[in-house]
Write a protein that binds this DNA or RNA. Structure first.
Lengths: 341, 341
DNA sequence: ACAAGGTTTGGAAGCGCTTCCAAGTTTAAG
DNA sequence: CTTAAACTTGGAAGCGCTTCCAAACCTTGT
C-alpha cells in the first residue's frame, strides 16, 4: 500500500503518458488506447494511488458530500430510536452512491444561526437532507431561496416548492384507529405528537377522520399532546386516564412505552383495560409486554429513497418539486385484543 | 443575502485591492491597513460573500472535516442509545471547533473493504474518530500504518501506538460489583458484553477483581455473555436464572432491560429476589421499574474530549500516543436494595 | 538628511485535479 | 489511393483559494 502522497502527475510520468490521459483512465473514460490504459492501471495498482478528492471536487464543482441536518432535536434524538435508524439508513445509502454524509445537529436557534453559513454556502455540500421539525422551520425556506438542493424529510408547511419525502401519516393513523374500532373499542383516545409539527397534526387528522366515520364526536378530553419522548407519553397518558378511554392511539412507540408505564402504575392492564396502537415499529415495539400493535414505517426504504431523491435533485434541478408519501403497514401484536364489551 | 457565487477576486476587485489583501482580511491576518480592511469588510458584508471551503481546503491542505467510523454496529446501533448520544456529543463539539463530522457506518467486512479507500486516502478527512469494536479490529492498525490521524474510542488491542479515549471500565465494573456486595448480596452473577471486545473483557475483569477481594471464587455458571442488546440480555439472564444468583452486574443498561424482562417472566422481582446494577446511565435507566442503579459514563464530556484529542493529533502529530481513561460514577437508584439475608 | 529596519501591498506560483481544444493518428469509405 | 470521419493524445487553461516573495512605502535613530 502506498504511503507518501502521490499526484496524478507522478502517476502520469511513471506511466509515460500525459496527465490528461492518466486522468482519463482513472475516471474510466473513453478515448484511451487499451495498451496505455493498462500501463496506467498497472502504475496505479502498484503505487496505491488514489486521487485527491478535494482537488477533484474543486475541478468538478461537486463534492459528493451531502449534509443531513436535524434541528431542535436534543431530547427526541436521545430518546427515540427513530433517528438512529434513519441516520443509519441514510449513511448506508450515501455510501452506496459514493457519497459522504455530513452530520449537522442543531439544538436551538442559536446553533442554527451559527451553523447556517457552514451548510448553506456554495462548495462543501452538494445538497442537504433536512429533517423538518417545527411547522415554521425557516431553514427549509432559507435554503430553498438560496437555490440550494434540499430534500425535506417530513412534510414542510409554508415552503411552496419544497421537495419532500414523508410517510403517509394520515393514512397510517387511520389504519391504527380503524383497527381499534375493528377490535371493538368505543372510547378511543389519542396521544399526539407535538401539534406544532406536521407529523403531529397529520396523525391527529387521521384519528379525527376515523372517529367521524364512526359517528363518534371527538372529545377534546380524549386528546393529549405528547412530545415523542417516553416521559411525554407518560404524562399524556396520565391526563387521559381520568376520562376512561378503552383504547388509545399513540403517535409513536416511544410515547407508547411511557403511556404503558402510566397505565400499569394506575393498576390497569393492556390490552384488557386499555388497548393501544403505536406508530413506528422500531425495535422497542416488539419488546414491550405485551408486544405492541403498531404502524410500521419502512424506515430503511425511507432512507434509501431520501438519498436517491436528493441525488436526483442535485442532478436535474429542483423542478418540478418531488413529493412522495410512503405507505405504512399495520403490525398486529398483542396490545389490542378483541374487546369483550 | 447573496445569490450567485462570488469569488475572492470579485470581492477584491469591488474593494479595489488585490486578491492577496482580500484574503488577508477575510482570514483576519495582519499586515493590512485598517482603512483597507474596513473597505473589504464592507464589501464582504454587502455581498454576503463566503469563501469556497473546497478551494480553501485544497490550498491549505486541510479540509476541516473529520470522520466518525463505527464498524460492525447494526444491531447495537439500533438498540442502544449509547451511539446516538455519542454521535450527538461528537457532532456538537465538531461544530464548535468549526469542523464538520462525516459519518461512516459499517455493517460488515465487505462494507469495510469497500469504504476503506474513501476514508483513508489523503485529502477528504483530516482525521478519524474510530469507535473500536472487535479486539482485532484491523481498521485501526491499517489507518495508523498509513500515518493517518486516528483517535480510537474504546481501548484497542494489538495496535501499539494508538491514541485512545476510553472509560475506565475495570474501575466502573468494580464500583458496580462492590456496591452489590456492600448491599449484602452474596451470589453475584454478571452478564458481560461480547468477550471479543475490550469493553466486554474489562468489565468482566472488574467483576473478577471484586469477587476475589471478597474471597468469592468466580463460578463460570454465574457468568453469561451478552451482546449489548436487549435481546441478548434477556437470553443471558435466562441462562443465569437456574443458578439462582441474588444479584447481577450487567454490562449495559440496554441488556439490563432484557434481563429484567427475563426476571419478571420468571416471576421474580427486582430488587427483592435479584438485585441489579447496570452500566451506562442513559435515558432508559431511569425509566425502568424499578429505576436502575447503574454506572454513569460521562458521555457528553467523552464526545468533547474525543474531538479535542483528535484535533490535537491532527495539529501536533501522533506522538506521543494520547491515552485517556475517564472516570465513571455509581448512580444509586432502586434496583439494588439492601439485602435482608 | 540618510541608512536600517519594519510594515503594506500585490504579482505570481501553487494546491491536485478536470476538461476544452487543437494537433496528430487511425480507420472506413468512396 | 484519396478524403472524410472517426479516435487518441497532450498542452494549457481553469476550479477558488493561500502564501511566498520582492517591491514599495513608512518609521525611527543618528
Amino acid at each position: 500500500m502506498a504511503d507518501e502522497k502521490l499526484t496524478l502527475d507522478e502517476i502520469a510520468e511513471k506511466a509515460g503518458v500525459s496527465r490528461t490521459t492518466a486522468s482519463r483512465v482513472i475516471n474510466n473514460r473513453p478515448h484511451v488506447r487499451p495498451e496505455l490504459r493498462q500501463r496506467v492501471m498497472r502504475v496505479v495498482g502498484a503505487t496505491g494511488y488514489r486521487p485527491n478528492p478535494i482537488a477533484r471536487s474543486l475541478a468538478m464543482q461537486r463534492s459528493e458530500i451531502m449534509g443531513l441536518v436535524i434541528p431542535r432535536s436534543t431530547h427526541a434524538l436521545f430518546d427515540d430510536p427513530y433517528f438512529p435508524s434513519l441516520i443509519q439508513a441514510l449513511a448506508k445509502t450515501c455510501n452506496r452512491h459514493n457519497y459522504t454524509l455530513a452530520l449537522f445537529l442543531f439544538e436551538n436557534e442559536a446553533d442554527e444561526e451559527q451553523l447556517y453559513p457552514r451548510i448553506s454556502k456554495q462548495g462543501l455540500l452538494d445538497g442537504i437532507i433536512l429533517q423538518v421539525g417545527e411547522i415554521n422551520d425557516k431553514l427549509a425556506s432559507r435554503l430553498m431561496q438560496e437555490n440550494f438542493p434540499v430534500l425535506v424529510i417530513g412534510r414542510p408547511k409554508d415552503v411552496p416548492d419544497a421537495s419532500y419525502l414523508d410517510v403517509d401519516n394520515v393514512a397510517g393513523a387511520r389504519k391504527a384507529v380503524a383497527h381499534l374500532f375493528a377490535t371493538g373499542h368505543q372510547r378511543v383516545a389519542t396521544i399526539t405528537g407535538p401539534l406544532a409539527t406536521t407529523v403531529g397534526i397529520d396523525r391527529l387528522e387521521g384519528y379525527h377522520q376515523v372517529l367521524q366515520e364512526h359517528d363518534c364526536p371527538s372529545d377534546p378530553a380524549l386528546i393529549a399532546e405528547g412530545n415523542f419522548t417516553r416521559g411525554g407519553g407518560y404524562q399524556a397518558m396520565q391526563q387521559l386516564l381520568p376520562h376512561q378511554p378503552d383504547a388509545v392511539f399513540i403517535a409513536s412507540d416511544t410515547m407508547a412505552l411511557g403511556a404503558m408505564d402510566a397505565i400499569s402504575e394506575a393498576g390497569l392492564r393492556v390490552p384488557e383495560d386499555i388497548a393501544i396502537v403505536g406508530f413506528d415499529d422500531l425495535a422497542p415495539a416488539a419488546q414491550t409486554t405485551p408486544p405492541l400493535t403498531t404502524i410500521r414505517q419502512p424506515i430503511a426504504q425511507f432512507g434509501r429513497k431520501a438519498v436517491e431523491l436528493l441525488l436526483d435533485i442535485i442532478e436535474r434541478g429542483p423542478y418540478p418539486p418531488r413529493r412522495i408519501l410512503m405507505d405504512t403497514e399495520l403490525v398486529v401484536r398483542d396490545s389490542c385484543e378483541v374487546h369483550a364489551g
